[in-house]
Simulated scan of single mutants.
Amino acid sequence: MQSPLFDPPESPDPICLLERDGRAEYFSHFYKADESDHFFESLLHSLIWKTDQINMFGKLVTTARKVAWVGDPECRYTYSGIEKIPQAWTEELLQIKHQLEAVTGFSYNSCLLNLYHNGNEGMGWHSDNEKELDGTSPIASISLGARRKFAFRHKQDKTTVPVFLEHGSLLIMHAPVQDYWHHSLLKTKAVTNPRINLTFRKILPRI
């Protein structure tokens, strides 16, 4: 099935969410509804989704949400002590990657996707600061599916900046956001539909 033609957002100016200690930009409708619907269905059925395992207080915990790690062959990634070997790029993911590279001016060699089945599944406060990540490159995050509440929280003064991530939206987190801010996908019983989140990253080659 051919992907819909990408049409840049009507308003090219993003909303600036963070004004200090890094920059976060938000496009509420980076993709139109039909494009977003297409990508959601394609990614849901074309990738191998697996439950995630995280290390909490020395114990491996299996999460309800599912993940898919996609990237160039050398992009092995260790998250919470678990090494992930990338799946191959799909046509749709390459399309999105090239569009994000054009918008951000940075290149990406990997993408971590999370599948949240409903609002009971979320992500606690954390920073994307694993040693494999290129700390100078922004992380570009696409949201597909259910509208969910996301928030930043400053590591020192605990200032909180919330935003609702819309279907087809783009959030760009520029350095040094990960050094100064945590972020979280908040749980809610009000959401019953699934959401797929795509975070495009630059992984450093192993020495």
Rank of each mutant, 00 (worst) to 15 (best):
V67H: 10
P138G: 07
F40C: 05
G145W: 04
V191Q: 11
D21Q: 05
I142D: 11
T188A: 12
M123A: 06
A88I: 12
P176E: 07
F6A: 08
Q99N: 14
Q156Y: 10
T63R: 14
R65V: 11
A175Q: 06
S184A: 14
L113S: 08
P86Y: 09
E121P: 00
L165W: 05
D7V: 15
E25Y: 10
K50E: 14
P9G: 09
Y77K: 02
Y77P: 04
C16Y: 10
S11G: 02
A33C: 03
D134Y: 03
H174L: 07
H167I: 09
D157Q: 07
H117R: 14
F30S: 03
Q99F: 06
A102L: 15
E166R: 03
P162A: 13
E74S: 15
Y31I: 04
G122P: 04
Q156E: 11
K97A: 09
L60P: 00
G135Y: 03
T90D: 12
E92M: 05
S42K: 13
M56S: 10
R65F: 15
Q178P: 01
Q156C: 03
F27K: 01
A146M: 10
R206H: 08
L170G: 08
I96E: 06
S46R: 11
S107V: 08
W89S: 11
P138K: 06
V103I: 11
P9I: 11
I15H: 07
V70T: 09
Y77W: 12
N114C: 05
D37K: 01
P138E: 10
C75W: 11
D72A: 13
T192K: 15
G81W: 02
L186N: 09
A33S: 13
M173W: 03
E25L: 15
K97F: 11
M123L: 13
S28V: 01
K202G: 01
K84G: 00
D21T: 02
L44Q: 14
S110A: 15
I207V: 07
L93M: 14
P162Q: 13
R65G: 10
M173R: 02
T78F: 06
L60Y: 03
R195C: 08
I196F: 08
Y31E: 03
N129K: 01
G22K: 05
I207W: 02
F152P: 00
G22A: 10
D37Y: 04
Q87A: 13
S36L: 10
K149Q: 15
E10D: 12
T136K: 15
N193H: 10
S143L: 08
P138D: 06
L171G: 06
N55S: 13
